[in-house]
Design a protein around this nucleic acid. Sequence first.
DNA 1: CTATACCTTAATACTAGGTACTAGTATTAG
DNA 2: CTAATACTAGTACCTAGTATTAAGGTATAG
Lengths: 191, 191
Amino acid sequence: MSKTTLPKRERQRQLIEKLKKDPFITDEELSDDFNVSIQTVRLDRLELGIPELRERIRSVASDNYSKIKTIEAKEIIGEIVDIELGENGLSILETTNDMVFEKTQIVRGHYIFAQAESLAIAVIDAKVALTGVANIKYKKPIYAGDKLVAKAHVHRVRGNKYFVWVFIRVKQEEAFRGKFILVSVDENGRA
Amino acid sequence: MSKTTLPKRERQRQLIEKLKKDPFITDEELSDDFNVSIQTVRLDRLELGIPELRERIRSVASDNYSKIKTIEAKEIIGEIVDIELGENGLSILETTNDMVFEKTQIVRGHYIFAQAESLAIAVIDAKVALTGVANIKYKKPIYAGDKLVAKAHVHRVRGNKYFVWVFIRVKQEEAFRGKFILVSVDENGRA
DNA sequence: CTATACCTTAATACTAGGTACTAGTATTAG
DNA sequence: CTAATACTAGTACCTAGTATTAAGGTATAG
């Protein structure tokens, strides 16, 4: 951008920004960008306590390694602690900071929906299921850290249609209720 | 484990396994584990086409970096391509293999729900919103690769309640419809 | 106007975790 | 016995650094 060199303060501020956005930048590239020597970049990093490229990459990798693992394990969202196939089930979801709206710290609705739907699907005694209809209501906001306890109950079965009710409570207080009509399908996804 | 060295085949098989489970192992550690020289490990990697530690870490990092980014960018699920605040909006979600039930390749309902809810929240002209009630219906199964086109329309506003209808189509065919009642809240999450 | 402090650059020695290559030994099969 | 296969050893080189010492430049205070 600009050819003139920035004052130290500003340069360091931008350095932090830059590496936050993209931690995969070498000192050499940075020294080019800022139009200073590579030593200056290194002094800056030292002052700011920013580790070297390889460490940055390593931490991105190991941070996300476990993170991704848990996200993928989320075929079913929430941990099923008790289930009676075709009858009822109970699952628990510990909400985290990843699940919230930044501004309000309120857990995004679809995580709650996902827990409920996952449990509803798990509880019915069919190979594969599809949500047909859901009628849901959020009763009160849920915050990061809240432990959601979902109870599902198979209300009625008619043909390949399952009527499942799910209630989610936080500290004994009802936070969500949903009625799902699930449709079991064959291997080809036909109802 | 065993002090005796394994036959080459078996060692290489285990090497692959090991690095799959944990890609953060150096050649030196591997040579210790397998009780062979570091050169042997390197020959093995060369034969098997396994890159060096730093490359492995780098790819874990960058793979997951974008993956995490998109997951985190999931403040809004799907890409909003058009929006008239308070009126209507349009978003597109390209479904991927990450989103499906393994057995049937059918996209999990909560992704669809999330797209619809995200758009509904985005379209209303309020700082923060919370889903109060939703009435939804899945009309047909959606498969990995399908492009979901969601249209939201603000139906009515009453006080801090917004009635938003969302329709999702796949190749012009309706796949989902939902009616959301969204509640705007203040900074403290109160309605 | 000079002295001091700070900023920047340069240069050198050293590190981890490799690649690429050459040269060798040990073991086994035919 | 010979050839093939498996393994080990060692060297030169690379990248992206750390750590340290030294040397200039500039701005500001006295």
